[in-house]
């Protein structure tokens, strides 16, 4: 049994040996806000916050998140609705397929937590570990700038 704190709730999971945090979150805890993209720390689709820091869950063993606080995209919601950052992404329609978006929003949240007024190039740099194939990059940047401005 692995004890985890996910989105503010304590949970215990009977995960197989060597299970990744990604697989436990997606397939055992039925959370949606992290996606398998590469399994090799190359694309950022699987990002979550661990103690507030962005981390790729695909190469993080579930056991190393034990005793730490894990936040997924669902965990950013406020009062059951979108957070201001999520709302800014909705308002800018900052996605095509949206598969990359969970990781992107997590990265962006971590950036804003550290730097509430980022420049466009700060954002590009912070999101460089997140791949987007649809070409939603500039919309994503606009959404982050909007969230910073509205905060």
């Amino acid at each position: 049994m692995i004890s985890l704190n996910i989105n503010g709730e304590a949970v215990s999971v009977d995960a197989p040996e060597g299970a990744t945090l990604l697989s436990v979150l997606t397939n055992q805890l039925n959370l949606n806000g992290q996606k398998y993209g590469c399994g090799k720390s190359q694309c950022g689709a699987c990002m979550v916050l661990i103690d507030g820091n962005p981390a790729v869950s695909c190469t993080t063993p579930a056991t190393s998140a034990s005793g730490r606080s894990v936040t997924t995209l669902e965990g950013l919601r406020e009062n059951g609705g979108p957070s201001p950052l999520q709302q800014a992404f909705i308002d800018e329609q900052a996605a095509q397929c949206g598969y990359c978006l969970s990781g992107v929003i997590i990265s962006a949240q971590a950036l804003l937590d550290n730097n509430p007024n980022p420049t466009e190039s700060d954002i590009r740099l912070a999101l460089n570990g997140n791949l987007c194939r649809c070409g939603s990059h500039n919309r994503i940047i606009r959404a982050v700038l909007r969230a910073a401005k509205e905060a």
């Binding site: 997606t26 959370l31 949606n32 398998y36 997924t72 950013l76 609705g81 979108p82 900052a94």
Partner: peptide
């Protein structure tokens, strides 16, 4: 944007 269930992968 909020982690709803939408993709077959999840």
């Amino acid at each position: 944007m909020t982690g709803g269930e939408i993709f077959v992968q999840e």
